[in-house]
């Protein structure tokens, strides 16, 4: 039986792999949940993106815990976390690093910027100038930095968690769609429930719970998990399903701009990670359906009709998902 999977020989191993992934992910999730309460969906997406080697865009109003989420993630995974606060006067070299001339040694020395870390937190990315934004986005796409003609690889895992305020806020340069496309997923944290907010008063009242957050895994283990995630099986029907879904965004009359082929790749990778997070060694439609909105919605531009009907991209994607038949044997 040829199923066209690249890991046929590892049938048993894949199952083990996914169990490991699920166990580690549970630990990380448990750790983060001591800091961010009542947001399991956002957390799961964040972990999915981490394991799928993508970048996460968190878009929400100020003060709902965007930064906290990124920080908690970095802390729970024992790896380097760098934070860049984007401001209008931030320069590209402030991100990538600069070469400084040492007079005594008579040579240039490279001072690596904050991008040389496992998790880079780009705070309020839409406040920086487009030039600076694109510097970060280049690093995101190529996972390397070129300064003064030398190319330096970034560490693995490398994940940019960028936060931005919703579009029409003062002093912001909204990310153009071409750059939004480089983020694997966009989530919004949303306001906590009243109960979670009450609990928050207790836990955050005296000092930050972040300090109590002990790391439960490390970068090496995450790299290993990423390897394992790539072996998750995607049935031919499922591939077709993903392609159909992405295609649907291109042909949907409500949308001015559909999702890119990169979106297809991101969706498959994220679906693999999502399946592994649940301890499954194969992707099911539920994975794709859960991830469709966070992964596709921010790449789409609703057309004028959709705007007239006040349909957001998220709603359109959800509609498409609800209409597309799941792959089933005839």
């Amino acid at each position: 039986m040829s199923l066209g999977t690249q890991h046929d020989g590892h049938g048993g191993d894949v199952r083990e792999d996914t169990d490991t992934v699920a166990a580690v992910a549970d630990r990380v999730r448990g750790a983060i949940e001591t800091v961010i309460e009542g947001k399991p969906d956002v957390l799961r997406i964040a972990l999915t993106v981490l394991l799928a080697e993508g970048h996460l865009l968190i878009e929400d109003v100020p003060g709902v815990g965007k930064t906290m989420l990124a920080k908690a993630l970095g802390r729970a995974v024992d790896c380097s976390v760098q934070r860049v606060q984007f401001t209008p006067d931030l320069l590209p070299s402030d991100i990538t690093g600069v070469s400084v001339y040492h007079q005594d040694r008579n040579e240039f020395e490279f001072n690596p910027g904050p991008v040389f870390a496992n998790i880079v937190l780009g705070d309020e990315i839409n406040r920086a100038s487009p030039k600076t934004q694109s510097a970060l986005l280049e690093c995101m796409a190529e996972r390397q930095v070129s300064v003064d003609g030398r190319t330096r690889a970034l560490e693995r895992p490398f994940m940019v968690v960028a936060t931005q305020n919703p579009g029409d806020m003062e002093g912001t340069y909204a990310l153009p769609e071409a750059q939004r496309d480089r983020f694997m997923a966009r989530v919004s944290v949303g306001y906590p429930s009243p109960q979670a907010e009450l609990d928050m008063i207790d836990s955050h009242g005296s000092r930050s719970p972040l300090e109590n957050l002990a790391s439960v895994t490390n970068a090496a283990e995450i790299r290993d998990l990423i390897e394992r995630v790539q072996r998750v099986h995607v049935a031919p029907g499922m591939r077709r399903y993903v392609v159909d879904l992405v295609n649907a965004t291109r042909t949907a009359p409500e949308l001015k701009l559909g999702a890119s082929p990169r979106a297809t790749l991101h969706l498959v990778r994220a679906a693999r990670a999502h399946a592994a997070l649940e301890g499954r060694h194969y992707v099911v439609p539920d994975d794709v359906q859960t991830l469709a909105v966070p992964i596709l919605a921010h790449r789409l531009l609703p057309g004028p009709e959709a705007q007239m009907e006040r349909l957001t991209a998220e709603q359109i994607v959800a509609k498409l998902v609800a209409r597309l038949p799941v792959p089933a044997p005839r």
């Binding site: 199923l3 046929d8 049938g11 049935a235 029907g237 194969y282 099911v284 792959p327 044997p329």
Partner: peptide, 9 residues
């Protein structure tokens, strides 16, 4: 059913 449809084996 899910297993029968989507799992490799």
């Amino acid at each position: 059913e899910e297993n029968a449809r989507y799992a490799p084996e």
